[in-house]
Write a protein that binds this DNA or RNA. Sequence first.
DNA 1: GTATGCAATGTAAGCCATTACATTCATCGG
DNA 2: CCGATGAATGTAATGGCTTACATTGCATAC
Lengths: 353, 353
Amino acid sequence: MPRLRDVPTTAAPTLEDVAARARVSTATVSRTLNTPSMVSAATRERVMAAVEALGYAPNFGARAMAAKRTNTFGAIIPTMENAIFARGLQAFQEELGHNGITLLVASSSYDPALEEEQIRALVARGADALLLIGHDRTEAAYELLDRRRIPYLAAWVHDPASVRLSIGFDNRAAMQALADKVLGLGHRHLGAITAPRAHNDRARARFEGIEAAMRARGLDTARLQVEEMAYSIENGAEAFRRLMARAPRPTAVLCGNDVFAAGALMAAREMGLSVPGDVSVTGFDDIELAGIVTPALTTVHVPHREMGRRAAQMLVALCAGADPGPSVKLETTITCRTSLRPPPGTACHQTFT
Amino acid sequence: MPRLRDVPTTAAPTLEDVAARARVSTATVSRTLNTPSMVSAATRERVMAAVEALGYAPNFGARAMAAKRTNTFGAIIPTMENAIFARGLQAFQEELGHNGITLLVASSSYDPALEEEQIRALVARGADALLLIGHDRTEAAYELLDRRRIPYLAAWVHDPASVRLSIGFDNRAAMQALADKVLGLGHRHLGAITAPRAHNDRARARFEGIEAAMRARGLDTARLQVEEMAYSIENGAEAFRRLMARAPRPTAVLCGNDVFAAGALMAAREMGLSVPGDVSVTGFDDIELAGIVTPALTTVHVPHREMGRRAAQMLVALCAGADPGPSVKLETTITCRTSLRPPPGTACHQTFT
DNA sequence: GTATGCAATGTAAGCCATTACATTCATCGG
DNA sequence: CCGATGAATGTAATGGCTTACATTGCATAC
């Protein structure tokens, strides 16, 4: 049986160890590491050699305590279980990386109390700034952030009514545009699958977008069949089944996101329903999944990467005391794939792209 | 235009502030928070009231420095871009939560140098223990961990040849079983899509599993067509296209994971190839995606949640100085869906479940 | 040659919580 | 009624780093 090499245990080397080895003061070592320009080239070399030899890595806690900043940002997203926030967050992280900033991520499970707790935890950990999703959170959370003057930014939303700095898109208008397209194809019996709207402004706005589209065409929003469930593929499937059991049966189901829509497609297949032959399905977000499922989803495309990148830039500016500029509104587009078509029984020559 | 409420800015309250307000010493406050049983009920109440009133949260850095532990574990996974590690990590995190431990996650992009850097960063941040994926990493990384006596655990692998503690499954045997099933159906021209094997023992083992299955049936492994690319849907599609251009064209493509397989299915559809009519495709991991794509993937099911949960238990034990037990080998199974069938031209009455 | 300024480096005061050790005080046995 | 005991609390050292301020030494200007 193989044996582990014996490695001598060593306490973590400290600044002092490095200083002793390089025969300088701890201040010089610190400067070499943080503001190299303040140190002569010869000294710098000697210090770096010592750092190298000792495998020195600064103790984070000590550094944070002394410097009062950590070069760490935090992000709290509702969930990591699906890819909805993955791409945006990836871009956010990359951009932070270019600025020498580390990202700490936490998830709140769409629960305001948990989000507040996570905010507290990240602040205690010394996060210099926070990226949050949407505007819906507890009063206490806002108070904490404002009291401590922690810069923060709400992403994934653009709500003209809010004073808080944000970067995102108009969820309501985006969904309204999609719903209008659906109605334009002749659909009159719509179903909607939405996430719980209580603490989720994005879900609320998207849902209102559907209602707005209907009202704009003089349709009674009471005709809209609704299922409200937590985001998940399985729930999307379940909600779809329920909608198909309603009377009148919807000819188009608008899903609050692509994950729901993927579940709906699965359920449709199981029920022997053809999409888009018997019923149309739309998504929202245009995550990778949307292009993979069969039929590929017609959905709202969101510029996730740009949102993440620019969010990072704004927060960095904010932290530096610079002007981050006003809230940013990004444009969404509708990505037309194959899951949306006119309702059954519509003349074939009708255009529907 | 709405205006922000004016919130009085306050520096973060410290232990001393709390102590002053509760008219006790800082030691008593600390004890109230960490070992409440050592404090009288009356004092405890007074202290907690002060904590509440001030919105006090202990400064993480200071605590880490004084206590020499952080109740924080770290995990470094190769990627967050797809769901491969999501479920296992979720379970890991949940189990840690039950033990009052916070999880910090970093990703290495399958790059050993970056992983080493991340390890260093997490250690500097005071991680009490680390969860790592696989056994392939730099000598320096191992040395660092051993020197500092940071408990760590390799997950997603079970390699009998390694001394290092691990929890996972036998990637080689699992893939061999699947490949054997494919060969058993009559396929003789196999294609493989693998992740870069250089620094990835899981990818290597899975690939060797295919070769082993072929050898066990007396087949020449030279007949195996290989494409090696980084994990991604698009790369899976590209690799599949290339394999289909080879002669002889494979009748079954074994993918290193479900993400590749999803890409392969997409490419097949674009090329007008029927799966599994013209060509079979298999995955690995059985992530949610596997059941969603059309056709649904035949793949290797991995007990991700159990792996995550037990990994947490082992690391917690290790940290407590208790015996974590030996390395754990988990069993995988083959999940049969519809993407695998005998090669075209095979008699129809043949069983292939 | 002296005054001046500046670059390079050193000294030491914090930052905030934990905890070993010291102190206080009430209770109990004898 | 005294000393011993132990629960409750306080005192102060400690940890590793940054940075304001102090010092040094050299080049430049006059």
